[in-house]
Write a protein that binds this DNA or RNA. Structure first.
Lengths: 152, 152
DNA sequence: ACTGAAACTTTCATTTC
DNA sequence: GAAATGAAAGTTTCAGT
């Protein structure tokens, strides 16, 4: 992971469909060593995949919610159960283990408020062992980028 | 935005570098109408771009932080100033306006704790007009996907 | 041994029908 | 939606550092 690798990563974060030729040009490399580096980054799991960035509202998912959840107990069994169940919920795009008063933060996408109510009632509460839930809806988005800051 | 469009979107969220040929096959369309739909989704801003998904830790950004911020005043001027300044900070990958006790939630990426301290001191505090800051570090990630749940 | 260049093969995007 | 054409992209090989 040197400067060239980081340049490649940032270029592919800006445009994941860039051709290898353009990428090579952008980072001042010829196509074959450039492709070698990309393949290597993919193989090592540094580049985990490529994805289209989509406007959730235009797709029909107007509501983005950050849900913070605290468990009642933190024994291995309850934690595993919670995490396993959460991974299976389609509406949950992200789930992080957090420091602070709450244990988890979820990013959830639903079409409307009613769907969110159903999500909590039918997907989250049935998991059990939940001490408290804190919901914050997204009003608007000031910034959203995939491009990392340059390191070093 | 019909079922085919949503299928296309979800396929491109799973693999943003998919060729039009493979995409067409995946959604049971022939290449030319498929490409027409993709171009249309791009033109309408539904598909906003394509990006590589990168492991932040492997890139050298080991610390993910969710920072919730409350402003002292909510007049147009102070709000605009805050949002303008936040957009310029490279370490801030996301900034949302939120319901609840805090006004904003930021997703921040830094190499280490020291860098986070410097980030707050040199990037956030100098903006001014901030009433309170609440920091939650990410311990681990249970789930992270780009693929939307299917709607309808 | 690793990087850069070039040629060749294959595949894809585009346009027309 | 299919087919043809033109353009790229990937792969492999070779040369140089």
């Amino acid at each position: 992971m040197d400067t060239k690798d980081r340049q490649i990563i940032r270029a592919l974060q800006r445009d994941g469909r860039m051709t290898n030729q353009d990428l090579a040009e952008a980072v001042n490399l010829s196509p074959s060593p450039c492709l070698r580096r990309v393949r290597n980054l993919e193989a090592k799991g540094v580049i985990q995949g490529y994805s289209a960035e989509v406007d959730p509202a235009a797709y029909g998912l107007a509501i983005t919610v950050f849900v913070r959840i605290k468990l009642e107990r933190h024994n291995e069994e309850d934690v595993q159960k919670f995490e396993k169940r959460v991974r299976l919920i389609d509406e949950v795009l992200e789930c992080h283990v957090m420091t602070g008063a709450m244990d988890y933060q979820l990013r959830v996408l639903v079409p409307d408020l009613e769907a969110y109510e159903n999500f909590i009632r039918n997907r989250i509460h049935p998991i059990g062992g939940i001490a408290s839930i804190d919901t914050s809806f997204v009003y608007g988005t000031v910034k959203r980028t995939a491009v990392f800051p340059l390191s070093r």
